[in-house]
Nucleic acid binder design. Structure first.
Lengths: 353, 353
DNA sequence: TTGTATGCGTTATCAT
DNA sequence: ATGATAACGCATACAA
């Protein structure tokens, strides 16, 4: 099929060892031979076989990425961040998605063995113990957004803090009836965000109202349904807090259909700050997560672990990325909706209280 | 480190060949030995080394995916479609993005050799000849959205037809001043869409007006700038046709800032039908591409080529996926904005003239 | 049914 | 500076 190192060696009149040395600059080689080898390699369009190289080097130069899903801008942003960092380190990405249960994760992990130097795992709806069991031994692992009960390094988002801050912001704006559209049952991110929401309410002396709480699923459609539900209440909320931006998009869509002005009659806020959030109509007030940064940080941690080959640690490292509320028009707070027309709204500093 | 097939063989008291036979069901093995082997394998948490298996089988069970970028919902949708199809066939994905020039593609292709069974390449802004040279020989390749001048199978979108149909639709609505926000120079998709737009204008006897043509870059920001530019004209357009949905999002955002009602004063349409398009405010009239289907089709073709190991063909297969105009509110055409509230707008059949 | 031995394409160790 | 050769971990043709 395609040329191997042996072909190059034969045509260049040297041994495979020398060819390898030339290609990897792993040992000094006489200039003339080097030139000859490179010449032949080019002629043959030689490219080293990745599998063979991996087997011999015991290193693949690839990171495994295991995701629950690929729907929406969140995951492409995350992947973008990971890819950016991996590429800087000369690593490629072996991606596997739609793993919602521990079995799926386990299978993915197995097929990745021997082909990746480490694993980046996001599994928000896999139970901790099951996830722990599915992870491989002897391979560096960094978890994204998931830690309690799992013995692996992880980089997480401050879901609690973000939701708490957002809720506090809404309370400060005078809202007392704050609707909440949650994610799927057992989704760890959603749970933490919900806790932040509840805590902030309690601290403000506002009772949690089950009528204002509906379950979604982190999709636009889920947000749409949630909004219809909440608006059908005898006493609808004055603002809807969607547990992620995708649902906030659905909420906005539902309100538009019902011809309910946003934020005048009902305000809307989200969580994540996906890239389109600022381009929505109205621009979405949300909790900035730094999605790409999350991915990049995870990749960086993993690459470090790979490079250092540290002994498996009892107390693995846990990074928590801060979140911040970015105020745009959808929450009704005073914000620069009347900035001079020459300043692109998406280039202005987001207002962060 | 982690257990190898030898370890399993030793502990089970059999040869590695037998272990291999058990694990791959490649030859009959006595039940008792099989049980013993499986038991030991489980105890050792054995998982075959991917690199070794690939080297020996001369098959990796992985598809290489080369993308120009990962920004926005388009690529996540594409990847989702590819992943879906690949997973059905038990293949994983080696993804490499941000390859805008032929050199980048060439490097990505080289690092993938020996680790993938075939290549899925999307490179809309790489010149055809350069792309052709960068592609590997002896490895099945399917191009996404790019064909002329490149000797490889490809699955494309009917960019011309879609843009033509959309422009015709706008003309039928009475629009005569149709602004166009193009993609980056040399972007193949953008070029084809522009040709469709121009052709439809010409057929309708409407002269192309350079004042109504601005260049963008397929990003939201590009669309935003394009809209500002077009609206600053002495005679602004009555509708803006963004060459992709991401730019249409930016256009909508700009118009909202300028407090120009859509579609009343200026209508907006896009291209791609990314998932959020129907949730925008107003819902976006656009050209449906079937992004995930495009990816899935590409993967399916590639998998077929891999399975059949066909001799490199002179006239490689070229699929062209049809496009269709989906009419929502943003173009101002009569459309079901007043459907019964119980019917989720995003579940109604999109109106397709 | 099971074991032995060879090959897959590189890298790395040891000679020379 | 260069060559021969043994891993790397698995699959498989050939024996038994």
């Amino acid at each position: 099929m395609s040329a191997t190192i042996k072909d190059v060696a034969r045509l260049a009149g040297v041994s495979v060892a020398t060819v390898s040395r030339v290609l990897n600059a792993s040992a000094p080689v006489r200039d003339t031979t080097r030139a000859r080898v490179l010449d032949v390699a080019r002629q043959l369009r030689f490219a080293p076989n990745g599998a063979a190289r991996t087997l011999s080097r015991r290193r693949s130069g690839a990171l495994g990425v295991i995701l629950p899903d690929l729907h929406g801008e969140f995951f492409s942003e995350l992947l973008r961040g990971i890819d950016q960092e991996a590429q800087r380190a000369g690593h490629s990405l072996l991606v596997s998605s739609s793993h919602h249960d521990s079995h799926g994760v386990s299978v993915a992990v197995r097929t990745m063995r021997g082909r990746v130097d480490g694993l980046l795992v996001m599994a928000p709806d896999v139970e901790a113990a099951a996830l722990d069991a599915a992870l491989p031994d002897g391979l560096p692992v960094v978890l994204l957004n998931r830690a309690p009960g799992v013995t692996a390094a992880s980089v997480m988002v401050d879901n609690f803090g973000g939701a708490h801050a957002m809720t506090t912001h809404l309370l400060a704006l005078g809202h007392r009836r704050i609707g909440f559209v949650a994610g799927a049952v057992d989704n760890a991110d959603s749970e933490e965000r919900e806790l932040g929401y509840r805590a902030a309410l309690q601290e403000a002396g506002v009772a949690f109202d089950a009528e204002l709480y509906v379950r979604g699923d982190f999709t636009e459609e889920g947000g749409w349904r949630g909004a219809r539900e909440l608006l059908a209440r005898p006493e609808p909320p004055s603002v809807i807090f969607a547990a992620n931006d995708a649902m906030a998009v659905g909420v906005l869509s539902a309100l538009r259909e019902m011809e309910i002005p946003v934020p005048a009659d009902v305000a809307v806020v989200g969580f994540d700050d996906i890239p389109i959030a600022r381009f929505l109509n109205p621009p979405l007030t949300t909790v900035r997560v730094g999605i790409a940064a999350l991915g990049a940080r995870g990749a960086a941690l993993l690459l470090r672990d790979i490079a250092e080959r540290p002994p498996p640690h009892r107390n693995p490292r846990r990074d928590i990325l801060p979140t911040v509320v970015v105020v745009r028009a959808s929450c009704g707070a005073a914000c620069p909706s009347s900035v001079p027309a020459v300043v692109p709204s998406f280039l202005t500093e987001d207002k962060i209280p």
